[in-house]
Design a protein around this nucleic acid. Sequence first.
DNA 1: CAGTGAGCGAGCTTCCGCTTGACTT
Length: 779
Amino acid sequence: MIENLVIVESPAKAKTIEKFLGKNFQVLSSYGHIRDLAKKNLGIEIENNYEPQYIIPDDKKSVVKELKKIAKDAKVVWLASDEDREGEAIAWHLLKVLDLDIKKVKRIVFHEITKEAIQNAIKTPRLIDENLVNAQQARRILDRLVGFELSPVLWKKVKPSLSAGRVQSVAVKLLVDREREIMSFKSESFFKITGLFKTNKNEELKADLKEKVKSPEKTLEFIEKCKTATFEISSVVKKPGKKSPSAPFTTSTLQQEASRKLSFSVGQTMSVAQKLYESGKITYMRTDSVNLSSTAIGAAKKVILSEFGEKYLKTRNFKTKSKGAQEAHEAIRPTFIENQDISGTDREKRLYDLIWKRTVASQMSEAQLEKTTIDINVSNDDHKFVAVGEVLKFDGFLKVYFESSDDENDEETKGLLPSVDKGEKLDYDSIQATERFTHYPPRYTEASLVKKLEELGIGRPSTYAPTISTIQNRGYVVKEDRLGNERKYISYVLINSKIKESTKAEITGAEKNKLFPNDIGMVVNDFLAEHFNEIVNYNFTASVEEEFDEIASGKLGWTKMIDKFYKPFHQTVETTLETSDRSVGERILGDDPETGRPVSVKIGPYGPMVQLGLKDDEEKPRFASLQRGQHLETITLNEAIELFKLPRDIGLYEDKKVVVSIGRFGPYVRHDSKFISLKKEDNPYKIELDRAIELIEEKREKDRLKFIKSFDEEPELQILNGRWGPYIVYKKKNYRIPKNIKAEDLTLVKCMEIVKGSDKAEKSSKTKKTASKKGKAKK
DNA sequence: CAGTGAGCGAGCTTCCGCTTGACTT
């Protein structure tokens, strides 16, 4: 019999801790929360003072059963879940669900997984903090109330299956607000003037004009003056500077750097980190703490001393800056800092390398710089040229790690400048003026959105990646690349007293892996902002967090807080349901000149669409989907009318009509009641009969290869060749053929076995299947 | 998903945070 049972949240943690404790201890994991609000209905009895209805989810039943069994016999049960709001609640749920005798329960906490920390924790047990538990219950219930009352409003007023929530709706709002900023941004042009000078020692000195010049006229005027001007060094200033290393990684900063340096999505980063954690290579990867244990700092010190020497060592503790950090764990670091390399997949190695460098650099000395600024006077003008150079005097932490920046216009670091003296006269080699343009604020990437959410205190390390997926899966947002446009710009160059003017072209506005709000995201956002401004306000989370803190400190009752929020909120839900119109982003564009019927756009049951005519017209209205790149807010009447040019009759083939149109799955040709998808390079508005016939014949050939086998006794069953290999069709349903069986060898009996087996499996796993299906985004 | 429609058939969809697998491509 086991004397002591310790329960932690994560199985990997359990394994490690068990090694630190003696034989009298068994360490098990709760795998996170073991209870949650009932999924059906609200799961909260509003009338009964917001009494929560807790259930044990199906996938936790076996965990609970196992824990119960061991706990019954143990003399002491140590509840060692994390020391934060959620962890405290987990401990409390364990107490309730395992039906433990309070006398044999001890609550312990530790922030780092070291032998010392754990033994200390065992020596100082405490009771469960009921106030903190109540703060968690308030958090959970508030989120459920918001999510489960707001989403159904969207189903009725916008489109079924949509969702809203305290976190996701703000994430979408950030993207929509930014997109609108970009749409209304007016780019202005100016001229950047760069001079290339020769020093007395015949060295090259490149300097930029301090001010930007607005107009081409003023620019030319200035360059004209340069023809006869003399240039003189008016000052040389040298200043020392330093750069300090960044703090070790938290979840959010790891996601940002992995995105910038390794091009990982936030989801990829988390799953690779999970693997590293499970194999014991790094500490816990869902953390908001920048703290390193003293053991870790000691290990880093050893590595730095032996690899780089004492000059490079400077240990320090970092303080968290982020709002609402709960710091239940350490920062993300290698478990054994002495291991600079690990075995594993390519991605694991690269992420580990990043974590290793960041951790070690955080304990290294500052980099020492020398910044030189040289000013150059122009004899006949007030403008000045300036050259800035930066020289690294001592590399310090930069030897191992350099943090990247999101700012695309970051000044490129300039190197050493030639040595010059004050008063020195210079000749120009060339003076070049290039037209530049102000840039709209940058679109968010997955990682920069996480950064912003963290700044606002919205979401937690465990939810950043799932939130980013949710808003994409709901169709509110897409992550994609967009091609830029060509832009012309003017350039003037002065060489040998002659000015040459030229017009050049560049690509601008191209985006890679950025998040763009879709029409549906904008419509939902506008609807929520109009009726539920309080919830989607950037400060909503911050203000409820303050109240959760009051609950945690015992100053406020949780049901009181919830009641104060819910009463007016629910009232708004009711009035919105009763009084607001359907909100589908409708815009009337004008009348179709051919038919005189009104043309409008809105979100339809299958996405954004154009409508020609009215619902109650004698002749039914016509509909067409918006094409990629077209948006409800920006589409013009002419573009909309174009969309009705389909379906197009393009001629006859074998005496039957050939029609081109666009369907749910993209552009297609219809012939003899068969549908054939167009290829990427085909344009449905322009395609001609010859090309269509080519596609028809190609499809026929494919169909010929498609058929493998059928049986006379069962005409409803066929074996066909599909995109993913052979499969069985029976009564209009499709069945996968097991990998070890050759399609040609199948008998009717065998086929029926597969059909029946698959039907059965589907029934038993129905609940699971729907859950996993939802996760897949429709492209 | 195994094929190209446009809201009255029923029943369902949905939140945020804490944790891992179980699934294919």
